[in-house]
Simulated assay, not measured.
Amino acid sequence: MPINVILPTDSEPSWRESALCAQTGPEFFFPEPGSSTREAKQLCGACDMRAACLEYALTHDERFGVWGGLSEKERYTLRRARS
């Protein structure tokens, strides 16, 4: 009998389960336009999953919210620098 292995999908990466953001609401990381991202970035700075989160956001071209401690504009700048 074959064993079924469930692998994480791109829509639900395994790092998200251990990330500090899993303990907060999404509005924290997707603030209204013009609102501060400081608190979200502070939480990201203390998270062990920050690098995986940022890489996911860059790979999947996430254009909104704070991912891996960076805002949309900061990720855009990083993408351009990598090119």
Rank of each mutant, 00 (worst) to 15 (best):
P31M: 05
Y76F: 04
A81K: 15
R79P: 03
T59Q: 12
P33W: 02
G68M: 06
T77H: 14
V66F: 01
R38L: 15
E55L: 09
R63E: 12
G45P: 08
R50L: 12
R79W: 10
L70D: 05
A40N: 01
E72S: 14
R82L: 15
G68L: 08
L78V: 11
Y56V: 01
M49A: 06
A46G: 07
E72M: 02
E39I: 10
E74H: 11
T59A: 11
R75D: 05
R50E: 09
E72T: 10
A40L: 02
L58M: 13
G69T: 00
P31N: 05
R63L: 07
F64N: 08
S83G: 14
Y56K: 01
W67H: 04
E74R: 09
E62M: 09
L54V: 13
R79M: 13
R79G: 06
R80I: 15
S35L: 08
A46V: 05
F30E: 10
T59Y: 07
E32C: 06
E62C: 05
G65E: 06
L54Y: 04
L58A: 07
R38P: 01
L78T: 06
C47M: 03
G45E: 11
V66N: 03
Y76V: 10
P33H: 11
W67S: 01
T77S: 10
C47V: 00
S71I: 07
L58H: 04
R79I: 02
F30K: 06
P31I: 00
G34T: 13
D61P: 07
E72H: 00
W67I: 07
S71P: 02
S83Q: 15
R75G: 08
Q42D: 04
E62V: 02
A52I: 01
A52F: 00
D48R: 05
E72A: 13
A81S: 14
F64C: 10
C47L: 08
R50N: 07
S71A: 04
Y56Q: 00
A46R: 12
R82H: 11
K73W: 07
T59M: 09
S83N: 13
Q42N: 09
W67K: 01
S71L: 05
S35F: 12
R80V: 14
E62F: 03
Y76K: 11
E55H: 13
S83F: 06
C53D: 00
L70A: 04
G65R: 04
E74V: 08
V66M: 05
F30D: 03
P33G: 10
R50D: 02
S83I: 10
R82V: 09
G68I: 04
G69Q: 04
R50V: 04
V66Q: 01
L43M: 13
A51P: 06
L58Y: 06
P31Y: 02
A51L: 03
A40T: 01
D61V: 09
S83L: 14
R38D: 15
R38I: 14
R75I: 07
A57C: 00
L43F: 06
R80L: 14
G68Y: 02
E39H: 08
P33S: 13
S35P: 03
P31A: 11
D48W: 01
C44V: 04
E39Y: 03
E32H: 11
H60K: 09
C53A: 11
H60N: 15
G45I: 09
